[in-house]
Write a protein that binds this DNA or RNA. Structure first.
Length: 881
RNA sequence: GGGAGCUUAGCUCAGCUGGUUCAGAGCAUCUGCCUUACAAGCAGAGGGUCACUGGUUCGAACCCAGUAGCUCCCACCA
């Protein structure tokens, strides 16, 4: 059978994925083995796979696959997040296209549409994860708004309310006028924008002649809500205005001038207009000075009836209009360009409006203590560690969490009201009725109303590591006891506070234990210009298309080659190309092996040495790779695997054992060497498997007939031989050096690689362990020892096993003496320089006194080495003359 | 405004307790090769004042101080 020259991922990927599924290799149930558990950061149901998911989930899959091979009961729990704002926005938009307005629907009708939408599109992203090879236990797929998980959310709300951690109150919240809901502080993104600072004159009441005070504001549209003007008590410009009042223009309201040291005298005119309804600071001032609150902006961002003017017009339109009107009245003193920060909604990108409203909050102070403590004491590790600082800072300054959202898609808050202003928190309406009736005897059940709001999505996802194992429904169940705490969490640093911190809080609150041990924080995938990949910029490649083009293995390798934990990843398709090329390299190594003719024959010395060397090399590298995994240095683990396969195995080992051609006829290989090589290759496939699951599985089956269930995905990770012959690998480096030097000389002298050369070696006796390899790989006719230098030959000095050897290659043509001399002299100078630096060090009394003895011994060895090398080169130079 | 981090080859990054001439890797580049596993390849080569300035030390890419530039996080200055 002809094996194609290039590897074709298309024909293998779906095949093996289905095969793994069929044999339930991803499935996990509690057993005697040690569990290794990851819960997926649930992607939004609205989501489609983007590069961030690709990166994130590939890392999780690598970890899961490796641990599975290492004998752990590996369990990767998948699922999706209901993403209340994002999903609701999507459904609203879809209904709008159909000509249906959300406001015309009842809650039940709307939710029916939303669920229909979810059932239709909610699973797309999970299907896409299959394409990249994600070995999730799909039978465990959960959804944050499914029945059990929702119930857990409601129970937690009731429980925390009972504990006094949840309260309801009127507060200044971040209002999203587009999503028509409050959002938490964490969902507001502050962006620096170019704004204008308007200087507006307010007339002092009853002043004669007419006196004005000039205030500076970036938001003139809120003037109608002003209820005071505030200045600093020490500001000499305004001291005479104690007790005075000013007239708010347009609306002609009389308001007091108040004095407060909150004011920055330097900013603007040192006079601040105070609008308690639309600014947090102003609100606080209002509370302090007992000011009236006039809410002039409605929830949709348009002027409310309370504004009296511009009613129903949008806040930004009004800004322009009011400036024009004020200007016509001669009240605009000047307009300055400034930069300031404006809050935007994370979900809808609308400008956030600070707004007073009644919301539910979770007190964060005491509940978050264990979450801070256990990250600081290292029981939970953040990788990379630098995020601990950020985490600490946030946890120490954490604000109460606004958990109510004015939406329908989500868990409805289990708070109930009667018609007399009583509130109870409990699970069901009948329960609520009974409780409310204690306070309100005439209450009828029809008058019991449930809170209209739903809970913040994060208020359900913070329970994820517990709820996916039914830890609320069945707190002593087999699953939760076995899998919790989970091991690793892989996620983006962006949601360290949104999600990670809160999961830790919930973990300690509800299980008394951490939810996971290691948090691996990936970077952000960016484009070449360093911009974050986003749909709106259109700079994000479609991962599925990349997979089709380069193969899932290629894309996986490409992405992970250059993404150390916590570092952003400037993505470029060429990385995928590199990944694909690697797949192809592996494929061709397989083709070579497959093409060997194997006979029962004695093993040549060359092959024997080669096998011993690679065995040692493999163990040396496996040790390093294991260590990289252990330290979560994923890219480094991959790079070492890559080099082990490409350089050590393909470029060196396979060339060492590859049978020669005689008269155009490939020679057979002896069975001992062949079998050893197959074992090596299988070990390599195993080490590659977590990164490249598909091609390794394909080759695993092609290289040998195997039983149905004998798959690499469940094969065991190679066992490290700690007693490997490390001396072999070291000495072979010297051998490589000699070979490379000869090849380099060929290049310089323009001698074809096909021309066989004679090599003479002049050195101390012994030390010819790898000579046969040198003969083969440097394409030598012979390698002989010589007592005397060979005149007229190209020569060089290289380290051999015990000391330095002088090497000579006699050539047909005459050598250029000057050129050779120059080359040797250069090397001599280098060696002399080296010797000198060592000698300086050794003659430095302070060094000898302070340095560790091993170090000094090492320096002495270097000195001796350098002296030997210099001597050898000098002798060679002599022989040239 | 507060905090954290970064700056090493053209690019992306290693350099893990200061000690091999330590200045590394992959990619890219250049040169020579279509050599019966692979041109998605093979062989070889060239790239760097380790941001800058001082200090500590026998010894600094690494420790300390300052300077410059970049990034991120947090924060209610109109």
């Amino acid at each position: 059978m002809e094996i194609p020259k290039t590897y074709d991922p298309q024909i293998t990927e779906d095949k093996w994925y289905a095969y793994w599924q069929k044999h339930k290799f991803f499935k996990s149930t509690p057993d005697k083995r040690e569990p290794y558990t990851i819960v997926i950061p649930p992607p939004n149901v609205t989501g489609v796979l983007h590069m961030g998911h690709m990166l994130n989930n590939t890392i999780q899959d690598v970890l899961i696959r490796m641990k599975r091979m290492q004998g752990y009961n590996a369990c990767w729990v998948p699922g999706t997040d209901h993403a209340s704002i994002a999903t609701e926005a999507k459904v609203v938009a879809l209904l709008k296209e159909k000509g249906i307005k959300k406001l015309d629907l009842t809650r039940e009708e709307f939710l029916k549409y939303a669920w229909e939408w979810k059932d239709k599109y909610g699973g797309i992203i999970l299907k896409q994860l299959e394409k990249l090879g994600a070995s999730c236990d799909w039978d465990r797929t959960r959804f944050t708004m499914e029945k059990d998980l929702s119930e857990a959310v409601i129970d937690v709300f009731i429980d925390l309310h009972k504990k006094g951690q949840i309260y309801r109150g009127v507060r200044m919240v971040n209002w999203d006028p587009q999503g028509l809901t409050a959002v938490s502080d964490e969902e507001v993104i502050h962006k620096e924008v170019n704004s204008k600072l308007y200087y507006v004159k307010y007339r002092i009441e009853n002043s004669l002649p007419i006196e004005y005070i000039t205030i500076a504001t970036t938001r003139p549209e809120t003037i109608l809500g002003d209820t005071a003007v505030c200045v600093h008590p020490d500001d000499d410009r305004y001291k005479h205005l104690k007790g005075a009042r000013v007239i708010i223009p347009i609306i002609n309201r009389s308001v007091p001038i108040i004095f407060d040291d909150y004011i920055d005298i330097e900013f603007g005119t040192g006079a601040l207009k105070v609008t308690p309804a639309h600014d947090v600071n102003d609100y606080n001032l209002g509370v302090k000075h007992n000011l009236e609150v006039i809410d002039t902006i409605a929830s949709d961002g348009k002027m409310s009836a309370a504004a009296q003017f511009y009613v129903g017009e949008d806040r930004f339109a009004v800004r322009k209009k009011i400036v024009k009107d004020l200007d016509e009245m001669g009240l605009i003193v000047k307009i300055e360009d400034i930069k300031n920060k404006v809050g935007y909604s994370e979900r809808t990108d609308a400008v956030i409006e600070p707004k007073l409203s009644m919301q539910w909050f979770l007190k964060m102070d005491s509940i978050s203590n264990p979450a801070l403590e256990n990250v600081l004491n290292g029981k939970i590790k953040l990788i990379p560690e630098k995020f601990v600082n950020t985490y600490k800072h946030w946890m120490e300054n954490v604000h109460d969490w606004c958990i109510s959202r004015q939406l329908w898609w989500g868990q409805q808050i289990p708070a109930w009201y009667d018609n007399k202003g009583n509130t109870v928190v409990c699970k069901t309406k009948p329960e609520a009725f009974n409780q409310l009736r204690i306070k309100n005897a005439e209450l009828r059940i029809e008058d019991v109303r449930q809170d209209e709001d739903v809970l913040d999505t994060w208020f359900s996802s913070w329970l994820w590591p517990i709820s996916v194992f039914d830890g609320f429904k069945n707190p002593d169940g087999a699953d939760i006891n076995y899998y919790y705490p989970t091991n690793d969490l892989v996620t983006a640093p962006e949601i360290l506070f949104f999600w990670v911190a809160r999961m830790i809080i919930a973990g300690y609150e509800y299980r008394g234990k951490k939810p996971f041990t290691n948090v691996y924080l990936t970077g952000i995938v960016r484009d070449k210009q360093g911009r974050k990949m986003s749909k709106s910029l259109g700079n994000s490649p479609d991962p599925i298309e990349l997979i089709e083009k380069y193969g899932a293995d290629g894309v996986r390798v490409g992405m992970l080659l250059c993404s150390p934990a916590g570092n952003d990843l400037p993505f470029d398709e060429s990385y995928c190309e590199q990944g694909r090329n690697f797949s192809n390299k592996v494929w061709n190594a397989f083709r070579l092996l497959k093409g060997f003719e194997v006979i029962d024959a004695p093993q040549s010395n060359t092959n024997k040495i080669s096998v011993a060397w690679f065995d040692a090399k493999f163990n040396e590298q496996l040790n390093i790779i294991n260590d990289c995994y252990h330290k979560y240095r994923m890219s480094e683990a991959l790079m070492n695997t890559y080099k082990l396969v490409w350089d050590d195995f393909c470029a060196w080992y396979l060339e060492m054992i590859k049978p020669e051609f005689i008269d155009g006829q490939a020679q057979p290989i002896d069975r001992i060497t062949f079998d050893a090589t197959i074992i090596f290759f299988e070990r390599l496939l195993k080490v590659m498997h977590p990164w490249m699951p598909f091609i390794t599985e394909e080759i695993w089956h092609l290289i040998k007939d195997r039983e149905d269930k004998e798959c690499i995905i469940i094969a065991s990770w190679p066992i490290l031989d700690k007693n490997y012959r490390w001396d072999q690998t070291r000495v072979f480096e010297e051998c490589k050096d000699i070979i490379t030097t000869i090849r380099s000389i060929r290049q310089q002298k323009q001698i074809s690689p096909k021309t066989k050369l004679k090599l003479f070696k002049r050195s101390a006796p012994g030390g010819n362990h790898f000579d046969d390899i040198i003969i083969k790989l440097a394409n030598l006719e012979s390698l002989e020892s010589t007592e005397e230098p060979i005149a007229g030959a190209v020569s060089f000095v290289r380290k051999t096993e015990s000391s330095f050897g002088e090497f000579f290659i006699p050539l047909e043509q005459n050598i250029n003496l000057e050129e050779e001399k120059a080359r040797l002299t250069k090397e001599l100078d280098y060696s002399k320089g080296f010797l000198k630096s060592v000698e300086i060090k050794l003659s430095n009394e302070k060094f000898v006194a302070n340095a560790k003895p091993e170090l000094i011994a090492n320096e002495k060895k270097k000195q001796a080495d350098a002296e030997a090398k210099i001597k050898a080169i000098e002798e060679q130079l002599m022989s040239l003359i």
